[in-house]
Amino acid sequence: MKRCVLFFLTFFCGILLLPGCGKIQPESPMRQVVDDSGQSLSLPSHPSRIVSLTYGTDEILLGLVDTSRVAALSQYAGNPDISFVTKEEAEAVGRKADMNAESIMALKPDLVIVSTAVSPQLVSLLRQSGIPVYVSLVAVSWDEMEEKVRGVARAVNEEAAGEAMVQDMENKKAKLEEKLSAIGPSDERCALGLSFRGILGKKGTLFSEVLAMAHVKDGAARYDVPKGTNAYLSMEILPEINPDVILMPVWKVKSGDDETAFARKIMENPAYRDVKAVKNGKLVPFPEKYKYVMSQHVTDAVEASARAVYPELFDKDSH
């Protein structure tokens, strides 16, 4: 009788120890990571149901991991005016996440990546539910963009890939500088980025630094604004700035946004008659993904800016 009892106990314990059975199986190892807000997080060693809530983290994430590890992207993914994520990549992931705690929790993510622009209340709700949330910074300089890339790479445990991405950024920047170094300070043209709401750029913003790297003078850089301020400058100062090129909006955020009508309004406004860009017809459509770039594609924004302002420099490449 004792032998029978021993046999069944041994058999039963063996069943519990089988992979995937019971709670005896050890949990996936966790890592301690500090995000860009200074918060220490406990993250899985290989997050495989990642949700990204901002277009910048979408782009960095898809440059680091396969789409099979991504449970959802931001609402902007696949929109060519604001996002570098292709329609095919967005379709491969298959889901877009709302800024809603319940809908995000329903995706059962093992990691959510946001930026400091996302509501702290949403971040807090997700963390209270037990979901690890990595907060990424909103970069306002090239150095901060490198920091942002390395941070997302750290969150998904792909630090080598993150370093490779940063190196690729550096290489592209160096190659562009080699071409653009032909433009001396006295030859630099002035450009002004517009949205449908007003003037972009301004001192201390990433877009202003992008233009500087493209050897373009940011017409709005004379206006100093506090870090993190998103207010637009008034169109009334356009004649005062007198740019050579105006980088026009294309991303329709609200009903009524129309790039053709907006351009016509500028061209027909008597107050802008003597603005160089207006006189010379240099109103260039310029996608917002370059103006609001927030990922490794900052190098693409530099090149796009240079092409828009110095097309003759790049026309030579086609001959």
Score class of each variant (00 low, 15 high):
Ser305Asp: 03
Glu209Phe: 03
Val278Asn: 11
Ala174Gln: 13
Arg264Lys: 15
Asn242Gly: 08
Phe314Met: 07
Ile82Pro: 04
Phe207Glu: 00
Tyr134Glu: 01
Glu268Lys: 14
Ile82Trp: 08
Glu59Trp: 07
Ala174Pro: 08
Val250Gly: 12
Ala164Asn: 10
Lys227Arg: 09
Ala308Met: 12
Phe286Arg: 10
Ser74Lys: 02
Ser74Met: 05
Val70Ala: 11
Arg150Ile: 12
Val156Arg: 09
Lys179Tyr: 03
Leu125Phe: 03
Phe12Ala: 15
Glu240Phe: 00
Glu146Asn: 15
Ala261Asp: 14
Gly219Cys: 02
Thr10Pro: 09
Glu147Gln: 11
Ala106Pro: 14
Ser295Glu: 07
Ser234Lys: 11
Ala72Gln: 06
Pro285Gln: 00
Met235Leu: 13
Lys316Ser: 14
Val34Leu: 08
Ile131Asp: 01
Thr86Glu: 12
Ala220Ser: 15
Glu177Phe: 11
Asp257Glu: 12
Ser45Glu: 14
Asp224Ser: 03
Phe196Ile: 06
Arg69Thr: 01
Thr57Ile: 06
Val225Lys: 11
Leu122Ala: 05
Val225Asp: 07
Ala221Glu: 11
Ser208Tyr: 04
Gly228Lys: 07
Ala263Thr: 10
Val70Tyr: 04
Pro285Thr: 04
Leu43Asp: 01
Ala174Lys: 12
Gly193Leu: 07
Ala271Tyr: 07
Gln39Tyr: 09
Gly14Arg: 05
Ala304Glu: 05
Glu209Pro: 00
Lys148Thr: 05
Ser318Glu: 10
Pro26Thr: 03
Leu125Tyr: 00
Val225Asn: 06
Gln296Met: 07
Pro120Phe: 09
Leu194Thr: 02
Ala161Met: 02
Met145Thr: 15
Val135Thr: 14
Met169Asn: 13
Ser68Leu: 02
Leu233Asp: 01
Leu180Arg: 01
Phe84Tyr: 15
Phe286Gln: 10
Gly130Thr: 09
Glu159Thr: 12
Val293Trp: 00
Asp36Glu: 06
Met1Ser: 13
Glu188Arg: 15
Ser28Tyr: 02
Glu144Pro: 14
Val140Tyr: 11
Leu313Arg: 13
Ile60Gln: 08
Lys108His: 14
Ser295Trp: 08
Ala92Lys: 15
Val123Leu: 02
Gly201Ser: 10
Leu73Met: 09
Glu170Cys: 02
Glu236Arg: 14
Ser37Phe: 04
Val138Gly: 01
Arg154Met: 06
Ile113Arg: 10
Lys252Asn: 08
Lys291Thr: 02
Ile113Ser: 12
Phe196Thr: 13
Phe314Glu: 06
Ile266Arg: 03
Met294Tyr: 05
Glu146Ala: 12
Val253Cys: 05
Val284Asn: 04
Thr54Gln: 11
Gln167Lys: 09
Tyr290Gln: 06
Ile24Leu: 15
Ala301Cys: 07
Val253Arg: 15
Ala191Leu: 07
Gly193Gln: 05
Asp66His: 06
Val5Phe: 13
Met30Glu: 00
Trp251Lys: 04
